[in-house]
Design a protein around this nucleic acid. Sequence first.
DNA 1: GAAGACATGACAATCATTCTCAGGAGCCGG
DNA 2: CCGGCTCCTGAGAATGATTGTCATGTCTTC
Lengths: 136, 136
Amino acid sequence: MTTKQRTTKQRTAILEALAEQEDFRSAQQLHDDLRSAGQAVGLATVYRNLQALAAGGQVDVLVTDDGESIYRQCAEEAHHHHLVCRECGSTVEFQAPELEEWTRAIAAAHGFTDVHHTMEVFGLCPEHEAGEAPSR
Amino acid sequence: MTTKQRTTKQRTAILEALAEQEDFRSAQQLHDDLRSAGQAVGLATVYRNLQALAAGGQVDVLVTDDGESIYRQCAEEAHHHHLVCRECGSTVEFQAPELEEWTRAIAAAHGFTDVHHTMEVFGLCPEHEAGEAPSR
DNA sequence: GAAGACATGACAATCATTCTCAGGAGCCGG
DNA sequence: CCGGCTCCTGAGAATGATTGTCATGTCTTC
């Protein structure tokens, strides 16, 4: 099950790049980051590793509204959710025991089993809460 | 803000196609559906109208794991969530007042403003809850 | 019925992501 | 330490969904 995986310097580099990041980053951003850092890693490699890491639960994935996948190395190992600033991308992790229970209850009420859910919260962090409607 | 919109037969056709559907459909699926139904509508038009309808709150949009946008005409006008069977795609709508409040609370606790959230639940509906691990 | 405004449709253009394939680098037994 | 085999990497091509372009069609209003 646990697909055999080697320890290559590219993989290590990617993990380190993720470790230095607070925010969610797209594969492409990460690729740029690595380039800038002098670590020339192929784009395809970044994608492959990111997927592998995500599959192994070592990083969290989110799909943005426009269908881009973004990755982040999270502090919590356990299931948790995110509060993300839609301007600067800064992220707060939080857990929601009530939500979990509550979800289970709703699912059960409709006879659904083997449930899992996605829930993310987007907003403006204290630093960006100004009342203007900028870019989009 | 309310962009002026005409009543064209294409738009009508799209709405009808959506009305006949219980499940979420992608733009391309809808396009095919229309084609099959004899209503030859341009793909670009389907995309445009879907977006317009979504913006106007007349249809709901969901972004799948692989970044595809899927649309559905929902019964509820108000904000609500979905419980979707990952085998057959059948969907149950539900509201979650507690969740809404609760989300606001968490956001506030971290100083976030202008918050909105996404939350969808996936599972196996009563008809598919068998213990086998089929396709994927 | 005519003019102007917006919608449509076919196709090109984008963009993120995946595939392909040749060359390179870990890992294991000797 | 060496050979060999397998997995990984990297560059670019290929894919697939979505968006842009622009000439033409169709409402609406007068």
